[in-house]
Amino acid sequence: MTEDELVADFVARRPQALEEAYRAYAPVLYSVARHVLGNDADAQDCVHDALMRVWTRPGTYRRERGGLRGFLSVCVRNEAIGRKRDAARHLAIERRLGKTDPEPPYELDVDDFLERSRLREALGTLPAEQRTALELAYFGYLSQTQIAEKLGVPLGTIKSRVAMGLRKLQAAFPTERAGTI
């Protein structure tokens, strides 16, 4: 089956389309969730719930968005990040109530992720303030509000820096092409 055929089935909401889409991208989707959440059980729940949310909300995906891989991957990633933030908020409440140890200072260890020269080069082309904001969003899983608070910069400025940084990176990566899955 080609990507175009899979997209057509998905848009038409044919009964087997979700399973086929999952089979096509299972390693990517599971790996993204596992990477963000850090364990197998949470990752499985995350992928399952994210896909079912997509499938029960018609109109979420439309052809103009391009291939399914990026769409589904971002859906799973957002679900995972939401869960991670929820867990952090509950931990923060417990800390305020004195039930757990104080939160360790937040440190972003980007170096672990910068093994690939192409990514390093691409990020290196960005102005420092855009790169920092983008890294805090992508690697640190912080929301725009958290980034603004962390950097002491207005929210609108952070929004512009992150968006501009990501749009510049688009030129550095090849566009996803349709083909046989």
């Binding site: 990517v28 993204v32 991957s73 990501l166």
Partner: peptide, 27 residues
Amino acid sequence: GEAERTVAALDTLTVPMFEAPAALGER
């Protein structure tokens, strides 16, 4: 869609790949 493809490309470069459990597909 363009933004999603860029994020997916970042994932390709930064996310270690795991084998998806068979039970997840069945679920």
